[in-house]
């Protein structure tokens, strides 16, 4: 470990400890915003593990997140299983699904992958509603636990920390290096001996795993699980936009995007609830045309110029 990494590690530990103390100093409104932000930090950062190096815009977060929430709800209500068991099963199911989707689409052109993930959450929601209505009876799915908002927050913080550690390890590994080469030139990657399809599939599975885990942990927040709510296509887009806003070429980039965006998003949802979609659209345009490399890119440009 060199001194630069040491510095990052120290900053990381300080940030994590600071974040862990938030529920002690605040509760109610601000804690709930912090919980939402922590959820997006875990989701956006794990999304970037795959989409950052490969430049493939995965829109599957909503689907995997929904699987997490739905399986917890269904397992607890329909089958009387414990929250913990379901929180383990759900990510495994999502990982297997991610593998199948990855194997079917990631061997082909990237566009097919994007299109496939585009309607995925909606398609799974339709399937789940159909199965629920026809075979399981349309009873409500309740997730009743003793968790307080602070418990959920701490669990999300742990997941986010694990995501960062995983990302750090992957970036140092041959797998991470392979992904960077694939993002540069997939043909070269194949000819230097990289199994490009599997490398992408493995990272995509990682992303799916974490999205479902976050979905499972957040489920108790809703208490009542509705497929229409947990399988939210909008969530997929929010995760993409926050990651892009921060910058996806650095592990800590999404973190920088999530915090301001969550605050603005909350404010707009309360003050102009009908304009959230419009705002989402304008944010996408803003990023593409004016900050294509995110805040991190802007910052690195600035410091680069100052050095010169």
């Amino acid at each position: 470990m060199n001194s630069g990494e040491m510095k990052f590690l120290v900053i990381g530990v300080v940030l994590a400890l600071g974040a862990a103390s938030i529920p002690i100093v605040s509760d109610g409104y601000w804690l709930s915003i912090a919980t939402t932000a922590m959820m997006y930090i875990a989701l956006s950062t794990s999304w970037t593990l795959f989409s950052g190096p490969t430049h493939l815009i995965a829109l599957s977060t909503g689907a995997f997140f929904g699987i997490g929430g739905y399986l917890v709800g269904s397992g607890m209500s329909d089958y009387d299983q414990s929250f913990w068991l379901m929180a383990i099963i759900a990510p495994v199911v999502a990982t297997i699904l991610a593998m199948l989707i990855g194997l079917a689409t990631l061997r082909l052109s990237g566009v097919y992958f994007v299109i496939f993930t585009l309607g995925l959450a909606e398609m799974i929601r339709n399937l789940v509603s159909w199965v629920q209505n026809n075979f399981l009876g349309s009873r409500g799915l309740y997730v009743l636990t003793d968790f307080t908002e602070a418990h959920i927050y701490w669990m999300l913080l742990s997941v986010a920390t694990i995501v960062f550690l995983a990302g750090w390890l992957i970036n140092r590994s041959r797998l991470g290096f392979a992904l960077r080469i694939i993002g540069n030139d997939e043909q070269v990657a194949r000819h230097v001996g990289i199994n490009t399809a599997w490398s992408k599939v493995i990272l995509f599975m990682t992303t799916g795993f974490f999205a479902a885990l976050v979905g499972a942990i957040v489920a108790p927040r809703y208490s009542y699980i509705e497929p229409n709510v947990v399988f939210s296509p909008q969530l997929s887009f929010l995760v993409v936009i926050m990651a892009l806003l921060g910058g996806i070429h650095r592990l800590w980039g999404p973190l920088v995007g999530v915090i301001p965006f969550t605050l603005i998003w909350e404010a707009i949802s309360i003050s102009f609830p009908n304009s959230t979609t419009l705002f989402l659209g304008l944010s996408f345009l803003l990023i593409v045309y004016f900050i294509p490399n995110g805040f991190v890119g802007l910052f690195e440009n600035l410091t680069g110029r100052m050095r010169k």
Binding site: H55, I57, F237, N274, L278, F284, I287
Partner: peptide, 21 residues
């Protein structure tokens, strides 16, 4: 490809936003 996907998402959401309102 990436840029046009993101830009047309933006246009898409902006249009939906306008239509909803």
């Amino acid at each position: 490809e990436v840029d046009s996907i993101l830009a047309t998402f933006g246009i898409s959401f902006a249009l939906v936003g306008v239509m909803v309102s």
